[in-house]
């Protein structure tokens, strides 16, 4: 069963997987828009995951806004229940990346740009803070897409088992805000690249 845009919630176990034709021995990524997310942004993220990480990526039909994770007092979404819901029904070898508009946070942190399960199955990223520049004004779409692609690569690499890197300019380096993301180029350091190469082969 293929989900349509008006269906709510993440994919359930037992759903037919349209990416089943992919080589089951290698890993691939499903991109899952959570709510009414800009389709171009999702495509840009998918293209970069494929080009930079070498992971086949397919865009799933959008699921609904993750209202179950909303913290009304903070007007933010708790990333942890979203990850928990997203990992359900993920086929072996598949990683799932959720993309949403709402502002993400963790109970202890005032915000996060994205959150991932290290060595797990799911990650989620938000466009909310990527759309603003340092001066608080909206950033041009091209800049926003580039930031989104970098955050997507960073979080999916976490799912592949990578931790933060100390190397200057590496996409796995912890970013001190959006302007710091802009300074990065779209690449990992050689050591992280090697780890990705090993990890994307998936479990033996």
């Amino acid at each position: 069963m293929v989900r349509t845009p008006d269906q709510k919630g993440p994919a359930a176990p037992g759903d037919a997987d349209p990416s089943a034709f992919l080589d089951p021995r290698s890993r691939h990524v499903q991109l899952l828009p959570l709510g009414d997310v800009d389709g171009v942004a999702v495509s840009v993220a998918a293209a970069n995951l494929q080009a930079v990480l070498g992971l086949p990526a397919d865009v799933r039909p959008p699921a609904g806004d993750p209202d179950y994770a909303l913290i009304p007092a903070r007007r933010q979404y708790d990333a942890l229940p979203i990850l928990k819901a997203m990992e359900e029904g993920v086929p072996p070898g598949t990683l799932r990346l959720g993309i949403m508009n709402g502002d993400l946070c963790l109970p202890i942190f005032s915000y996060v740009l994205g959150e991932a399960q290290v060595n797990g199955r799911a990650a989620v990223i938000s466009l909310f803070r990527l759309q603003q520049g340092e001066d608080g004004r909206p950033s041009p779409p091209g800049r926003v897409y580039e930031r989104l692609a970098k955050v997507a690569l960073h979080e999916v690499a976490h799912v592949l088992g990578l931790t933060h890197c100390r190397e200057e300019g590496c996409l796995m380096r912890f970013s001190l805000g959006v302007e710091h993301i802009d300074e990065l180029v779209m690449r990992f350091c050689p050591e992280c690249e090697l780890r990705i190469l090993r990890a994307r082969r998936g479990p033996p």
């Binding site: 942890l80 109970p107 202890i108 290290v118 976490h158 931790t163 933060h164």
Partner: peptide
């Protein structure tokens, strides 16, 4: 959530 974030930081 704090422990998971710290682990990601290595």
């Amino acid at each position: 959530s704090l422990a998971a974030w710290l682990e990601k930081a290595g």
